[in-house]
Nucleic acid binder design. Structure first.
Lengths: 265, 265
DNA sequence: CTGAATTGTTCCATTATTTGGAACTTAATT
DNA sequence: AATTAAGTTCCAAATAATGGAACAATTCAG
């Protein structure tokens, strides 16, 4: 349950929409519903302005104002997201391969894509217990300390990579989290060579993963798939072995996309 | 998989945000990614205007533009929704009771709330198979042909109810769907008396449910919970029996909310 | 291959919306 | 009852959105 303060996109914070999205971000990222005054402090805007902006967001169902004057994320966001997810082509194509990989390894499998500096998880296939929905799906995680993130970064052309890394602000989640662009860059080059990435408890202590990059032909889509699990069960040796099936699954997904979307351009 | 064209909220379609939300609705409700020209036809706006609006939505990550010039819902919506869902107090309080009800009956249990003319499903607890996430959660369904919807409507004060009904446009999904405000109103009055509602295959042929209303003290939150399943397994007699446990579960949820949020006002 | 048609993008004077300071109302606190 | 804080409304000034038209890039037809 990590919340990272980074931008999901390279959003402009100017323009009417941009300013409203900043507010929406503020409220959705908060740990609890916020009062008008709380938002006022966080947003640093004139009261009149803020009040009208919040009113508009509430009118559109993007925020909700409860009886105690607290602002919470609006349920209309759920409706939008449900549609966004249900019809996502990348996810639809990847799903069967994720299931195969889960069955083969018995561990949790994730699918994520790079958006700005974050990885957004598009799907998750777990073993035993019924999936707690939305548990991970939709969550934005940092790219510099997740397997899927580093795999995705390894797909970037040199210049874009340097630019992105320059804009990162590192948070040391664990002892092994990368906290400098230099060491991260070195590892990403290695990953680009070998074609797979590890997360050696860099985001969460006790959690490891192997990941392989997945991309669309025109590189508009860059992400990855991973097998994740507790360190006590997933030795680094085992993860090295699993680098093969992850890469194979990644290849299958890309082949699937080629077939489905391929004949054009 | 029903898409209903009704508004989820009483949104104003004026103002900068309102106009952009109309576009977002358009794209997310479409069955497939739309081209610029498609949206142009649907939105009926000047080309220059539309182009800039779409550009802004893309810049904010609310829409995505693929390599073929097709607009699809943006993944940032997922991030917003994941947060909106994870911290929803109503859902958090209801969850254990939904699980209990599922275990007691063996059938699928839903939690939904009324937003405008639609029911938005907040949670779903299924039996056997691992839940396909987002399968129903977040979906907006019509209020006039679902158990949760009719249960929620039965909570409205007479005047609001008449107003809402007047604004409905009925779609006859099955032979038993209400298609007039009169018959619907009559049933809702009955539901208000007895405290539970049925869906007699009104939304989907072969699917029945019993639902009970759930509301917050100040009535800002009006929704319901339901037990849903195939008609061959859920006789009307069985559903009558289950009206008791659904109502009990509803009562428990409301008690939970009172305890958690109660001491005030 | 050329010209015509369609589709998508940019520009900018006009128009409409947003801005933000201040006055005002309501609720909480002493 | 008086004081402070919280929330809401108002309006001239500043800013952003509008939409028509010109421009570019693709696609299509002969």
């Amino acid at each position: 349950m990590s919340s990272n303060g980074e931008n999901t996109t390279t959003a402009r914070e100017t323009g009417t929409l941009g300013k409203l999205m900043v507010l929406l971000d503020l409220v959705t990222h908060a740990d609890a519903p916020l009062r008008f005054t709380d938002i006022l402090a966080l947003a640093g805007q004139p009261r009149g302005t803020l009040h009208r902006q919040l009113t508009h967001l509430v009118e559109e169902g993007l925020l909700e104002l409860d009886g105690d004057g607290r602002y919470a994320p609006g349920l209309r966001l759920l409706d939008f997201a449900a549609r966004s997810w249900a019809r996502n082509e990348f996810r639809l194509i990847a799903e069967p391969h994720l299931r195969d990989l889960q069955r083969a390894t018995g561990e949790t499998v994730h699918l994520g894509v790079l958006r700005g500096q974050s990885i957004i998880y598009l799907d998750k296939v777990e073993g035993r217990q019924p999936v707690r929905m939305y548990s991970q799906i939709g969550n934005a995680s940092p790219c510099y300390c997740t397997g899927v993130g580093k795999a995705a970064l390894s797909l970037l052309p040199a210049e874009s990579l340097v630019d992105l890394l320059a804009g990162l602000s590192f948070t040391g989640f664990t002892a092994s989290t990368h906290v400098s662009a230099e060491t991260l860059l070195a590892e990403i080059r290695e990953i680009a060579d070998q074609g797979y990435a590890f997360d050696r408890e860099e985001h969460e202590a006790g959690i490891r993963c192997v990941a392989a990059p997945v991309w669309s032909e025109d590189r508009t889509f860059m992400g990855g798939i991973s097998i994740t699990g507790p360190a006590y069960r997933l030795s680094m040796e085992l993860l090295h072995q699993w680098s093969v099936p992850v890469q194979l699954a990644a290849a299958s997904i890309m082949e699937g996309m080629r077939v489905r979307l391929g004949p054009r351009r």
